[in-house]
Amino acid sequence: MNEQQHLETLSDIKRIMERSSRFISLSGLSGVWAGLTGLAGAAVAFTQMSDYYIAWDTRGSYSDADYAALRYNLITLGAIVLAVAVAGGYYFTRRRARRNNVPIWDATSRKVLVNFGIPLVAGGCFILGLMFNNFVTLIAPSCLVFYGLALVNASKYTLSDIRYLGLAEIALGILNIFFLRRGLYFWTLGFGVLHIVYGLVMWWKYERPAKEQ
């Protein structure tokens, strides 16, 4: 064995350790897709909310029925946006995994999902509790904080850069607590803009050169 072979062995070991402990097929385009979906969702939510306030102003008083309808519409919208974002995100990541010739469902992706899921499910239950108690203004900041924590937690098992996205989401959520009733703007920034920026950076950093080869 010569020096070159030893170097190759060491880099093989490093690559195997990396590949067996981290899910690296997560595509930047998944982030961009989630961000665009988030922006579109925010635009629809914005019109729904402004329609609601216009109706309030013309009527001159608060209406229980209108509020219930708005609430229903926003929750439905949220569910649709989430489904579209996740489906598109899955599509781009699966595409990247296929190109890299690695399975999308293996020990590493399972670890990512479990560790991402724990803070997320906890947050989901917490937010259901907020809705139950009608603390609606706290929903947006809580979503951002828990989502950020989930990202930080999952970052140990996937691209470590995702940690910074997580920290940014947490910071936005905490800032939102001090600007309650501005939740939609923080959401747009956190789920829309940050995802797009992060996705583009990731794509540029990891996927762009691979495409040329």
């Binding site: 070991i13 195997i16 067996s20 399975p103 020990a107």
Partner: peptide
């Protein structure tokens, strides 16, 4: 390869090793 994988993963199944 097996040792490299086990160094960074606490416990891993036969099938996962085979796949990796």
């Amino acid at each position: 390869g097996v040792m490299s994988i086990l160094m960074v993963n606490g416990e891993i199944s036969f099938n996962d090793l085979k796949q990796m």
